[in-house]
Simulated scan of single mutants.
Amino acid sequence: MTATPEADGDADRRREGGAGRRETPEERADRRWTDLLQELRVAQTGVQILFGFLLAVVFQPRFAELSDTDHTIYVVTVMLGSATAAALIGPVSYHRLLTGHRLKPETVTWASRLTVLGLGLLFCTMCSALLLILRVALHSALALWLVGGMALWFLACWLVFPAWALARTSPGRSRE
Rank of each mutant, 00 (worst) to 15 (best):
G9M: 15
L88C: 06
L131R: 10
L130G: 02
P25C: 08
G118A: 00
F53G: 12
T125K: 02
Y74V: 00
G52D: 05
V57I: 14
G148C: 01
P162G: 04
C157N: 08
R102T: 05
V75E: 06
L155G: 02
Q38D: 10
G20T: 02
C127R: 01
G118S: 05
L142M: 11
P5T: 08
L97C: 02
V78E: 08
D12H: 13
L40H: 03
T2N: 14
T2K: 07
G120P: 00
T109A: 11
R113K: 09
A167M: 07
D70G: 04
D68Y: 03
A11N: 08
R113P: 02
W164Q: 08
H139G: 12
R22L: 14
L103N: 01
L121Y: 02
Q44T: 10
W110Y: 09
P171A: 11
W164Y: 11
G120N: 01
L54V: 04
E26Q: 15
G100S: 09
L88I: 12
L121K: 03
G17Q: 06
Q38H: 15
Y94A: 01
L117E: 01
T34Q: 13
A43K: 07
T45D: 01
R175Q: 08
P61M: 04
R13K: 13
L98V: 04
P5F: 06
V57K: 15
A165E: 11
R102G: 08
D70L: 08
T169W: 09
L122S: 11
A83K: 05
G17I: 08
I89V: 12
T77R: 00
L40G: 09
G100D: 01
T69A: 13
L130E: 09
E65H: 09
R14D: 13
L132I: 06
L132P: 01
L36G: 03
A137L: 10
H95Q: 13
A19H: 15
E39D: 03
L159F: 10
R31T: 14
F59C: 00
G17D: 03
D35N: 15
L119M: 05
D8M: 07
S170Y: 12
R62Q: 14
W110M: 07
V58H: 12
D35P: 02
I49Y: 11
S82H: 06
E23H: 09
A86M: 13
S140N: 04
G18W: 15
T45F: 14
E23Q: 12
C157M: 09
F63L: 05
L117A: 10
A165Q: 11
L114W: 11
V57W: 15
G90K: 07
A3G: 00
R21Q: 14
A137P: 07
L132R: 07
R135M: 10
V42R: 09
D12R: 15
L152G: 00
W164S: 07
L54N: 13
T45H: 09
A43D: 02
H95Y: 14
S93P: 00
S128G: 05
A85T: 01
L50K: 06
V160K: 02
A85N: 08
P5D: 12
L88Q: 10
F51R: 07
M1F: 15
P105I: 02
P5H: 02
